[in-house]
Design a binder for these strands. Structure first.
Length: 587
RNA sequence: GACCCCGUAGCUCAGUUGGAUAGAGCAUCAGCCUUCUAAGCUGAGGGUCGCAGGUUCGAAUCCUGCCGGGGUCGCCA
């Protein structure tokens, strides 16, 4: 329970007490009552909207009700003052001991501070890039976002499964196979000339050709495609996935499950079975679609086809499940895939997609509702495009020519931490400008270094404090245990209390971020926390009595080190959620 | 034509799920290093929250309609 939960309960108890004593006719609906940190520092420690939310039901004016609630709240010893302000806010001023207790709890809990428990199973699917080449920067954002979201949910107590859907069944992987076969002939000494239009030209397929040559010698040469397609495709996909896994590892992104699309068809047609089940349910039928308006569709052919009744679930049109050649559409396998998630016990699914898939959301949500009989819910998070530039000049990328900036190149150039933090220092559905030159700048303009430096500075203080308090344990939990005994009552400066309030906010922030599926909030919070910490540090320049290390006052120094420990604990925790290192020294 | 996302300070963006006088960085201007890391800090100026209605004690936030930018629209994934 964090401070805000505790005081929300106190406010609700106060209202119940009013009902008990007859000041209110009955106990009103309390769910909308919240306790929040006030925006203005001058408004005390906490504010509640209780009187405004409950006034109507209580038949009182907000301010009149506020007077009653405030009087009730002031009976609590930890509430020093309950003032009524504005339209009926109740601003609470707390005994500073509340914040000191919160700090003590943060230090005691260490890495577990802010952790939640009791969440259900959640499936998070992210990246899911085609296994036809290396990851490029476009994939990067989804990878980092999905990974951080999974971290956040796991920390909040959910049982998270991180999943990657391998699109290894469509026409794309056949093209991959043909491209790889060309490289195979090349590896055997043939001059293949320019790569024909329509095949993948990238030289990342050269090693695949060599591997095939090593494995098969010239056994596949001159054979019809039907004989070599499957083994070449299998080998190429395996090697592409190895490459992708390495790329992801370079970004510190990992998955628990790599789910093969092909596995839904081979060894028992699960796609067909899913369609049959939906058909039995009346959700699939044979019918015709209207030609889409406005879109260029010269080869449009009006034909009867197998359709999913997506319009029953809020989609705009019904969606085809079979191509004209009789094979399944991507959507059909995707339905079976999400059915598999449901069958594996997930009632809560999150998909992370690129912006160009936005038009796909309604039908996928519809499908999840249909295959789960309404028991499962899908949230689709769209990550917007990344505009890559260098010192303000846009870096052009052309997929067709095979000239694109790979994820690996970016990570090698600017570092994993910078990539991850910058990708998360923006709301997922807002476009992102990523400037390779700015991201490696070591300045305030670069929030990565700013936050990491906050952590490093905390450890610098620990190192420098040795002459006053003796050598501190290097191990975080041992040091925390050592500092937990500090007399926190010595921390009474407004700036120190303000920092303690900020730390007390962390558990609430984690909870809200996880619930909203918005890891960027953690990044912004860390920036604010670091900012407040840097400010307090520099305050010591003008006011020496506020420095963390006070030569002739060991007790006060230990108390302030405890505050630093709180800051370091939360920064390290938050950075871990984002998958960013928390260095102890930066030089 | 339809659907989805976005529109907040000169620029890049937050805004605690409907709260009080809308915030931060950059840029501009004025300051702070014999001191625990200046990779830092303090202050100033800067706003019709795209526009117009609506919902209510209260709207940048929710609803409707416009305007502008981006994305998508059967047989790619």
């Amino acid at each position: 329970m964090n401070v805000f939960d505790i005081f929300t309960a106190h406010v609700r108890d106060a209202v119940k007490a009013l009902a008990q004593s007859g000041d209110l006719a009955s106990v009103p609906e309390l769910s909308r009552v919240v306790v929040e940190p006030p925006r203005e520092a001058g408004h005390g420690d906490l504010a509640t909207n209780a009187a405004m939310v409950l006034a109507k039901e209580a038949g009182l004016k907000p301010r009149d009700l506020a007077v009653k609630i405030a009087a009730e709240l002031e009976k609590r010893p930890e509430i020093v003052k309950a003032e009524i302000a504005g339209p009926g806010f109740i601003n609470l001023t707390l005994d500073p001991a509340v914040w000191r207790d919160a700090l003590a709890e943060a230090i005691r809990s260490g890495a577990a501070y802010g952790r939640g428990e009791g969440g259900h199973a959640v499936n998070v699917e992210y990246v899911s890039a085609n296994p036809t080449g290396p990851m490029h920067v476009g994939h990067c954002r989804g990878a980092v976002f999905g990974d951080a979201l999974a971290n956040l949910l796991a920390f909040s107590g959910f049982a998270v499964t991180r999943e990657y859907y391998i699109n290894d069944a469509g026409a794309q992987v056949d093209i991959l196979a043909r491209s790889a076969f060309l490289r195979y002939r090349e590896a055997l000494g043939e001059n293949i000339g320019a790569i024909p239009e329509g095949l993948y030209p990238g030289d990342y397929l050269v090693p695949v050709g060599k591997a095939l040559a090593a494995e098969y010698g010239n056994a596949l040469l001159g054979k019809p495609e039907a004989e070599w397609l499957v083994p070449v495709r299998t080998k190429a996909i395996a090697m592409m996935m190895d490459m992708i896994r390495e790329d992801l590892a370079a970004l510190n992104v990992r998955h628990d499950v790599f789910f093969s699309e092909r596995s839904l068809i081979e060894g028992g047609d699960k796609v067909g079975a899913t369609i049959q089940a939906l058909r039995a349910d009346g959700k699939v039928y044979e019918g015709r679609l209207e030609k889409p308006k406005g879109a260029p569709a010269e080869d449009w052919e009006d034909r009867e086809q197998t359709l999913f009744r997506a319009t029953d679930f809020g989609d705009d049109v019904d969606r085809p499940l079979k191509k004209s050649d009789g094979s399944y559409t991507y959507f059909a396998s995707d339905i079976a895939y999400h059915k598999s998630k449901f069958d594996r016990g997930f009632r809560d699914m999150i998909d992370v997609w690129g912006a160009d898939h936005g038009g796909y959301i309604k039908r996928m949500k519809a499908a999840v509702t249909a295959v789960s009989a309404g028991q499962a819910e899908l949230d689709v998070k769209i990550v917007q495009l990344v505009k890559l530039s260098r010192a303000g000049v846009e870096v052009k990328m052309s997929k067709r020519s095979g000239e694109f900036v790979t994820l690996r190149e970016v990570v090698d150039e600017v570092g994993r931490d910078a990539v991850r933090f910058m990708m998360l220092y923006r709301k997922n559905d807002a476009p992102l400008d990523f400037d390779l030159a700015k991201v490696i700048e070591k300045s305030r303009e670069n929030p990565v270094f700013y936050v990491q430096y906050g952590h490093a500075r905390g450890h610098s203080i620990f190192r420098n404090a040795a002459p006053v308090v003796g050598e501190l344990p290097a191990d975080a939990s041992a040091r925390a245990a050592h500092l937990a005994t500090a007399s926190l009552a010595r921390l009474d400066d407004p700036a120190e209390l303000s920092l303690m309030r900020k730390l007390a906010l962390y558990p609430r922030l984690v909870e809200a971020s996880a619930q909203a599926h918005e890891p960027h909030r953690v990044a912004f919070y860390l920036y604010e926390l670091a900012s407040e910490f840097h400010a307090l540090w520099t305050l010591g320049n003008d006011k020496p009595h506020l420095r963390f290390i006070i030569q002739d006052d060991r007790e006060l120094t230990v108390a302030r080190l405890a505050l630093v420990q709180g800051v370091v604990t939360v920064i390290a925790s938050g950075l871990a959620l984002l998958g960013v290192e928390a260095p102890e020294e930066m030089r």
